[in-house]
Structures are given as structure tokens and as C-alpha cells.
Amino acid sequence: MKAKFLHGGLAISFVLSGIAHYTHMNTIVQFVLSAITILFAAGFLGKATESVAHYAGDRLGGFLNATFGNAAELIIAIFLIKDGLFDILKASLTGAIIGNLLLVLGLSILLGGLKFKEQKFNKTLASHNASLMVLAIVALFIPAVFVKDLTPKETSSMSMIVAGILIVAYLLWLLFSMVTHKNELADEVVQHGEPAWSKRTSIIFLVLATAMVGFTSEWLVGTLEEITHRFGLSELFVGAFLIAIIGNAAEHSAAVMMAMKNKMGAAVEIAVGSSLQIALFVAPVLIIISFFFGNTMDIVFTTYELAAIAVAVLITKSISQDGSTSWYEGVLLLVVYVILGIVFYLV
């Protein structure tokens, strides 16, 4: 009955949201319908991720969820590049990184911790994730420090070179974690009953759910400009928080569902893995794509954005590197997210 309600609600809300978008209904109506659709789609995505993880393991299941989710973000970002909206794009990338590390992981740890006193995941994986997060900070911090001594042409060249290096580093990480050292980084398999669907059906539904979230997120983001103007919100706040929460955190709410089933390994892979993928792969790929559009986006982020990413990485590294979590650590992540949100709102 619950599954039928989820599927029926998703189908109906998706159709209504699409009609509202393409017939240009009232902005508030579009916003509400899109938000409801995302809630249904997020539940569907979580169920598909759980089913895939049953067959492929928590790590691969979480990785697939993060990858499909970021693919939708990548498509939306390409349109921003085409229009030359680099500042909004960088703000949304910042928001995606801190949103996953602080909001998604924070909620996962909090809600999972309220159900289970202590949740554990692979300690070796946690250590590697911490090192990769530091690499992401270094890769963004160094260009920002030295950009003042570079010409625009040198800045573009530097951005392309750094982007290429980060892509290679990320691909080597996948080789390391998924092939050569996959056994060392795997979590203990904890099964909870039979999967909802077959392996093939689970993958198809994972792709379908992600596509629906991608479409609906784009529709909802399209309503934000008019809505946020009524409240006098800044472009930085809209890009780093509103767009990120709607377009990124919702689609990765599967992490919360996995944590509440005591599958913290999958939750961490979705939340932390997605942030790493954005910083080390998606952002560099966007820089290379912008080159082919004839206007290369640089890798230089603002001081506000760098500070936000740095504190998110710092607190996440401190909490997760021991391979175990409790509900209060989730509270700490959420507190940092709220503080950043307040500051970005007032800037």
C-alpha cells in the first residue's frame, strides 16, 4: 500500500508539475507542485538506491546515487555556462558541496543516530575521504591566493591545467576504491529483508527517479527568481543555499533513508562521495566544457565560498574520520550549516 501511494503520488504530482511549468501557471503554484513532486521522487530514489545497494553493496549503490544525482546538476550547470552565469554556477557548486557535507550528512547522522545509538562504517574509507576533502580545499585555495599575480590568459590556462589534474586524481580514486582496494574499503554487508525489485529493475528505476528529480528541480529553480525577489534575497544566498537545497539535497535524501536502516556506509558514500565528486570531477569538467563554449570559467572562488567549503570540510573530517557516528555529531554539522546560512543571507 505504501509503495503504491508513493508511485501514484509521484506520477500524479510529476504530471501536474509539468503542466504547471509548461502552461506558465502562477509561480507559487509551480513552486508548490514542484516541491511536492521532489518529495515523492526523493522517496522513490531512496527506495531504488536501497534496492541497488542490496545487489551491488552499499558503496557502489551510494556511488551510483551520487553520480546520477550529480549528472542532473551537470546538465543544469551547462545551461548556466552557455549563458555565462559563472558567479551563480560557482555559488551553486559551493552550495552543493556544503549542502551534502553539512545538511544531508548531518540529517543522516542525526536521524540514524536517534534510532541506533552508534553507527559504524569503514574507518579506512573515512580516512581516505578526509584526505580527498583536504585535496579539494587545496585545489580551490591555491588558485585563489595566486590569481592576483596572473593575467586573464594565465588564469584560464591555470584553471584548465588544475581541472585536468583533478579529473585524473578522481578517476584514479575510483580505480583505487572500486578495483584495487575495494575489499579493504567495503563495509560489512548488512541485509534487511528482500530487495523491492530485481537488479535490472532497480537500476532502471534509479535512473528514472534521478531524471524525474532533475526535471522537477529545474522547474522549481525556474520559479525561484520571482519568489526570492519578494524577500530581497541575495544572488549568493539563492545560489549557495536555495538552489543547492532544492536541486541537490532533495535528490540525495536517500542518504537519510539509508542511515535510518543502519546503512551508514551507503549514507556516507552518497553525502561525502557526492561532495567529492562535485569538487574533484563535476567542477573541473564544467571548466573544460566552458572552454569549448569559447569563454573559459576560472577555478577561482570567492573568499566567502572558500571559507564555507573549508569549515564544512573541517567539521566533517573531524566527525567522520573515526568511522563511527552518533546523533549529536549530526547536530554539530547542522549547526554549522545554519550559521553559514545566516551569514550568507545577511551578506
Rank of each mutant, 00 (worst) to 15 (best):
V285G: 06
V285A: 15
A259C: 15
I246H: 05
M258N: 13
S253K: 12
I270L: 06
H229A: 08
G273R: 00
S253R: 11
K261V: 14
H252T: 04
G294A: 08
L242T: 10
M264P: 05
G247K: 01
A307I: 12
L276E: 04
A244I: 14
I243H: 00
I270K: 03
A266F: 04
N295C: 04
T296L: 05
I243E: 06
A283R: 00
A244Y: 01
I287V: 15
T228Y: 13
M297W: 00
M297Y: 05
G265E: 08
S234T: 07
E235M: 03
P284D: 05
S275M: 07
V300A: 09
I243Q: 02
M260P: 12
F281L: 12
A307G: 15
S234C: 09
L280I: 04
T228I: 14
V272F: 04
G239V: 07
H229C: 13
S234V: 04
S253C: 12
T303I: 09
V282A: 04
V282G: 04
I287E: 03
I278W: 00
M297G: 05
G265N: 06
T228P: 01
F237V: 03
G239M: 05
T228R: 01
F292E: 10
L280A: 06
S290F: 03
L306T: 14
A259K: 12
A250M: 14
H252A: 08
A279K: 04
E251I: 06
V256Y: 08
S290A: 13
V285D: 00
L236Y: 10
S274N: 05
T296Y: 00
N295I: 05
P284Y: 09
A254Y: 11
A249S: 09
S290H: 06
T302M: 06
A249W: 05
G265Y: 01
S275D: 02
T303W: 07
V268M: 10
S274Y: 01
A240Y: 03
F292Y: 10
L233P: 15
E305G: 11
G265A: 08
T303C: 03
T302C: 13
L306Q: 11
K263G: 14
S274G: 15
F241S: 07
L233T: 08
S290E: 06
A240D: 02
M264D: 13
N248T: 12
S274Q: 07
S290D: 04
V300Y: 06
A254L: 13
A254N: 07
F231S: 07
V282Q: 02
V268K: 01
I246N: 03
S234K: 14
V256P: 14
A249H: 09
G265F: 07
I288E: 12
G265Q: 12
K261I: 15
L276D: 06
